[in-house]
Write a protein that binds this DNA or RNA. Structure first.
Lengths: 273, 273
DNA sequence: ATGTCTTTGTGAACGCGTGCACAAAGATGG
DNA sequence: CCATCTTTGTGCACGCGTTCACAAAGACAT
């Protein structure tokens, strides 16, 4: 999963647990597929399999929405599609703006999954004057100067940030000041926002790093049990206290030291992102 | 957050909780920034603020890695960067393949955050013969036919799927058969994989839907407390049992029925994604 | 109408993650 | 060497999320 939330941690949303809310789109997608195949009803078991969860969880999730099933039969597909759509707020139109029309921003603008769920790309915004007027995904890019006007004119409340990390916080501040209350952030930065503004984060490199962790673990344990071989045991944590200028106690940190290498013999590679 | 894991749910990874693992990249990023500014040490409080978490959580997370801090002083930045990098497996080189070079795939290929963390884009793969040979981000796209060969020749263990939903499972199966054991999936589908293969999912439209849910809630509660006004109360769940052909008890499902509309008077808008 | 069979809805137990609060460790100054 | 002050590391309690397991509800056949 590619998410981290900066939500109001405590406030339970109208009794529907956050974890359940996060799964509703999953159920909705599975139900929509069934609906297209004109399947009238599904059991919790079938639907759970299609959504990739276990059936007890699914039933409990649905129980927060109400008693929409029929015992002995299952759930009416069309009815449930509607109920979940309504609960998620997809029965209304959500204009969104995308800020930062680079490779990623352009890809997002072209992404079909947005428009198909009631999300309408109201505007594309970029700081580069050379981009202004140029159409991306059929929508002309507008300059950052117009940001506030665009948001208020279109009544936009959801913003997508796809700028470089350095510009993200500044863009975020302007979005919030202009009235945006929900932000989907693709820039690799921690955004700080006032209370009442929701931020969700999608970080591509973090996902890969998590995979790498597990991958390393797999590789390590298949090479027999006590794989403490290639530099797995850290040097004893001797008093660090500013170990910078080649101090004797300095552990093999990357860059300065030679020795320490991965099994493949490559440099540690740590850089901004 | 944009993630859902299809991990082995029970198996705790060498004592490091999954939630902690997911935060390590966050800490690493903050630490790297400090390192670039040549800051020698940080307190848990400072680092926690930079990473957007609370300091107790950060200290507990680090305690799973070992006792790398110095009481009264804080953490040595360089040392910690190295330790976290090593724990995440970033001290070695991870070749990855990206399958599906559409808008999103191309954006991923160009994304700097990959290369900068030890992830090397070993190959770009697409099913379209017209794409073959065309360079994207300086790397020539190769045809799907080469998939197995590319993976085995380069010893790739991490694959990124950026294909349309329809092709994802098939691509996934081929990747797994070829030896891939970690998959980052951008296609809006549930992938089924054998045990031992990790899948992480990044779903752009799901993130927006979650935001929409909270957004709707905000809008609803600011319009005074008992906002049960515009169609919030569902019709009583009368026995559905295949209520399809205009049966009398059929609730206001979208498409068939008229009535039932959002406050904005728009159609429910539910489609594939 | 009655019985059987299927499937939902949920009470209860369990486990993980979070946050508090404090004791221990060590640095720093006298 | 001792006192003070800062900051880590962690024991503990709490709450959320997951899963089990089963009673209740209803469909369906007879």
């Amino acid at each position: 999963m590619a998410t981290g939330r900066t939500h109001r941690p405590a406030t339970r949303s109208r009794g529907i647990p956050e974890a359940t809310v996060a799964r509703l789109p999953l159920y909705l997608r599975a139900l929509t597929a069934l609906s297209e195949r004109s399947v009238p009803t599904v059991s919790s078991e079938e639907l759970a399999t299609a959504a990739g969860v276990n059936s007890a969880k699914l039933r409990k999730d649905f129980s927060y929405l109400g008693s929409y099933g029929t015992r002995g039969v299952g759930y009416d597909v069309e009815y449930l599609v509607y109920q979940i759509s309504r609960e998620l707020g997809l029965t209304q139109d959500w204009p969104v703006v995308i800020v930062g029309i680079g490779n990623l921003g352009a890809a997002l603008a072209n992404y079909g999954g947005f428009a198909s769920r009631g999300f309408r790309v109201a505007a594309l915004i970029d700081a580069d004057p050379a981009m202004a007027g140029k159409p991306v995904a059929g929508i002309p890019v507008q300059h950052t100067d117009e940001l506030e006007k665009i948001i208020t004119d279109n009544g936009v409340s959801i913003g997508v940030i796809a700028t470089p990390a350095g510009a993200a916080q500044q863009v975020c501040d302007r979005l919030v000041a202009a009235g945006i209350t929900s932000i989907l952030n693709f820039a690799p930065t921690v955004l700080s926002v006032p209370d009442g503004v929701d931020v969700r984060k999608v970080d591509l490199s973090i996902e890969l790093q998590i995979l790498a962790f597990h991958e390393q673990r797999k590789a390590g344990e298949e090479a027999s049990a006590p794989e403490e071989a290639a530099g797995a045991v850290p040097p004893p944590p001797v008093a660090p206290h500013r170990a910078r200028p080649g101090a004797p106690g300095a552990p093999g940190a990357p860059g300065a030291d030679s020795g320490r290498q991965g099994p493949d013999g490559d440099v540690p590679a740590v850089m901004p992102a």
